[in-house]
């Protein structure tokens, strides 16, 4: 049998590479304490993961609506940006206080990187009225940061662990 350390190490590699499978999870033999710590981390991380995803979607949606504010999108934009900022503050604080078991620090760092990009967006742009009047170079910067945040989040994503970039439960795409 593979030693516990190697088991954990391999799992962490797989998680970080987004390759962990149900079969590989079942193959590991952890101590109850190790198992508990990892499970706790990923359960708690799921909420932060979903928050980051939601903030990315909020800000992207605001840009889309801001291009057609004449349709009445302005009201939703202001409301959504305010909600996104509140969510960001909460997610940032909770992610930093997550208990991170040894070895999953890279996964945790992906979440922090995504949050860092999003904080930078809110730091650079007064995302209230300004988002309705972005100049081209500003929207380029904003979209670049959004894409960076999305890439970091993708690095932390994993369907097996419930960290899904796309939730398929309400999708016409899931075959089973």
């Amino acid at each position: 049998m593979i030693s516990l350390d190697r088991d954990t190490s391999r799992l962490i590699d797989e998680v970080n590479a987004g390759k962990v499978s149900r079969e590989s999870l079942a193959a590991y033999s952890w101590t109850p304490q190790e198992s508990e710590r990892l499970a706790r981390y990923f359960v708690l991380a799921r909420s932060q993961f979903n928050s980051v995803k939601k903030i990315i979607q909020f800000v992207s949606g605001c840009i889309i609506l801001s291009e057609s504010a004449s349709l009445g999108g302005g009201r939703e934009v202001f409301h959504s940006l305010s909600a996104a900022k509140d969510l960001l503050d909460k997610a940032d604080e909770e992610t930093r206080s997550l208990p991170v078991p040894a070895g999953v620090s890279r996964h945790h760092q992906h979440l922090l990187d995504a949050l860092s990009c999003l904080r930078e967006i809110f730091r650079r742009f007064v995302l209230t009225e300004q988002v309705l009047h972005l100049k081209r170079d500003q929207s380029d910067q904003l979209l670049y940061l959004l894409k960076m945040a999305n890439e970091s989040l993708k690095s932390a994503s994993n369907f097996e662990l419930g960290l899904d970039m796309v939730e398929l439960n309400s999708s016409c795409a899931c075959g089973h």
């Binding site: 949606g61 889309i64 796309v166 439960n169």
Partner: peptide, 14 residues
């Protein structure tokens, strides 16, 4: 209510 929307798609939409 938010399912099946890919954040990457929404960024590309932006």
């Amino acid at each position: 209510l938010m399912g099946a929307m890919d954040p990457g798609d929404i960024i590309r939409g932006a």
